[in-house]
Write a protein that binds this DNA or RNA. Sequence first.
DNA 1: AAGGGGAGATCATCTGATGTTTAAAAAGGA
DNA 2: TCCTTTTTAAACATCAGATGATCTCCCCTT
Lengths: 228, 228
Amino acid sequence: MFKKESFQPVQSTKLVDDVVHQIQQQISAGKFKPGDKLPPEPELMQLFHVGRSTIREAIRVLVSAGLLEKRQGIGTTLKANTIIQEPLTQRLHRAKLIEVFEARKMIDIEISRLAALRRDDNDLSNMRKHLDAREMALQQNDREQYARSDIEFHMAIAIASKNAVIIDLYRTFSQVLSDAMNQLNLNYRTHDPQSQYHEQVYESIKQGDADQAVKWTLEILNRTLSEL
Amino acid sequence: MFKKESFQPVQSTKLVDDVVHQIQQQISAGKFKPGDKLPPEPELMQLFHVGRSTIREAIRVLVSAGLLEKRQGIGTTLKANTIIQEPLTQRLHRAKLIEVFEARKMIDIEISRLAALRRDDNDLSNMRKHLDAREMALQQNDREQYARSDIEFHMAIAIASKNAVIIDLYRTFSQVLSDAMNQLNLNYRTHDPQSQYHEQVYESIKQGDADQAVKWTLEILNRTLSEL
DNA sequence: AAGGGGAGATCATCTGATGTTTAAAAAGGA
DNA sequence: TCCTTTTTAAACATCAGATGATCTCCCCTT
């Protein structure tokens, strides 16, 4: 008897994916030059023998990927320099650890500043929750839980900044940094004497005092950096 | 006579983009856990007060970005992969313009600070060169050359920061922002009365005064932000 | 020469209808 | 009771039609 798990469902080709791939291939093959106009939607419907919504979803995907540009009343055009970008995580893995650290420090500081200006009650209660869990784990000497809570606390600050781009940047940098330091058998934020600073950061954000929040965040970061 | 600069085109946010931003925000803020199901299409229609095709296009964008997973008969679920394997440019294309701007502001400031601390003679001469070219273009009313020199000047500052990760971030953010603002028929850094501030930034960096460099960079940025 | 006003092209959005896929409930048989 | 089959409901996939919004272009008037 075969294991069911060893099989995968046949690639059920959705029409939209098919259209996306075909257009993408045409672009990759250089059939279009930057600035060239794609056929209008009704024509694409005939060319691909699909409905309007299928065409529109396919085009929308390529627009969001940055390959095409759509303008009402004008049409759809091919954008210039479709340079192949690598994922940020890959880029960071290639980078010097100190550079990644420095960049994350920049993000950390801005996050604290924005959080102090924008936090709402929900943000504060989340931060408080993780801060308490962090303290608890510290007293019980639960390194695992401590590390988790510490990350969650900082993530809660990030979320309070209300800027999705910065949140994503912070998440990516922290993840890569954590991986890299584990690999080097370095402890990633597992030093106990910082509880006071974390409390200070929380209080500053709660008070809405951006300058103080930045100041205490810097205190934490400078201590972590010294271990590198 | 009214100043042209005092007007701004009406921000015509397409419904699909709005829906994408809202869902992205929820995901980035961690409101969903991996595996969580999104409400079905009819419910989303009611929640957002838009038609089904609008919902479908928005979901399709996030699926193509790798954040969501759609299965016929099942529904739409949040993908497990927390760290998105997605080029940064693509992520920025999906973001709200104001969020990208805010993040680049953060980078710009840190770059000025680091440049003041780390610039060498070569950096300074490069900055001087582009600053002169910028001034020259301004007097000759060569908008094209002015824009190019302005970007080069700021890029020279970035390079002086000596952090490759931050340089790459800055380049990516600037490019995406430039594209986006061009598309909105907004001028991207083409206001003349800032020459003094650019000179101040250069002088501060030359003196190695990080605080002053940040201060004057903020002056420039606050003026650009006011146009958004 | 400047501005007004269509006409046409093209995308944006909504709505209704029908087909497919999936999971789970219901039914049936041993 | 347990296993298999059938049915049903949920949810996405796709198409078609209609209306609105936006942009370019051209012609006309002043």
